[in-house]
Amino acid sequence: MSKGSVVAAEAPAGRKLGFFEKVRKYRTLIFMCLPTCLFFFFFSYVPLPGIWVAFVKYNYQKGIFGSRFVGLQNFEFMVESGKLWSLTRNTILYNLAFIILGNLFAVFMAILLNEIRSKAFKKVSQTMMFLPYFISHVLIGVLVFNFLNYDTGFVNTLLTKWGFERWQPYANASCWPAILIFIYLWQQSGYNSVVYFAAIMGIDGEVIEASRVDGANAFQKIRYIILPSLRPTIVILLLFALGGIVRGNFGLFYNIIGTNSLLYETTDIIETFVYRASVTDFNFSTASAVGFYQSLIGFAIVMTVNFIVKKIEPDYSLF
């Protein structure tokens, strides 16, 4: 690493390096990013022609390019279902909530962690926050059911004990956005906060030192030093997250809601709908059609947001 930066600094000003010279000079850096480049080349670019499968009637024997071309027929069922709009809306709204609240919460937790002075307490709380991330969605589904079900659920047992009426969330669609977002935050925030915590650790100690000499209190330190320093990290993570905004969190939704059609109004996302519609007839083409639709929208959103960020603060944009 140090060698690379030294080399870069030594490049004589004014003289442009040829391509091969550049390659030779920066070979260490190039070598270091080679695995990543190869990864994306093989797993993201090589399969791209496979998108074609979304436009054919796929036959195993004839292969992707030998199968009969059917135009947009594979996209039809999504449109014909009349649900395309509500599914896309649900998916995007949930993801917006996950991204915005998730990041806010993660930043908040990272700052709190940073302020804890007792080392033992810090370690214990970090572990506790981390733990939910490693619980599978299947288990979470079971846990939630045991908490919330009407007959024997934990919440309802408490409610009846305290003399309140029972609550029936599994027949009540309107309460699920809040429940699902809560579960998501509980599960993900601890893990997400690590990046921010690392960013805080990376803030130049002298700046913080200087603020203390100037008499800033803890809140002022957070407001004027830590938060501004975290801004680039927040913006970049947001941009990355927005690319997947049309991709729903299938595991979370399917394991908690299952096939309870009473709750679909507020909880059905593109993934769960497509799963139900396709699980009975294994169809690569319609699945790819949906994936293609999601990628297109995701691409459009990233481009738009990046464009806006570029206008406001060029340094923070991705490209």
Binding site: Q73, F77, E80, S81, A171, N260, S261, L262, D281, N283
Partner: peptide, 26 residues
């Protein structure tokens, strides 16, 4: 079902969803 695949899928989905509510009296 090539020409009606989408419709069959959607009917199946709609029927299943309503039957969850109807067959369980919900």
């Amino acid at each position: 079902v090539d020409s009606i695949e989408g419709k069959v899928k959607n009917c199946n989905e709609v029927f299943g969803n309503y039957m969850k509510q109807i067959a369980y009296g919900k």
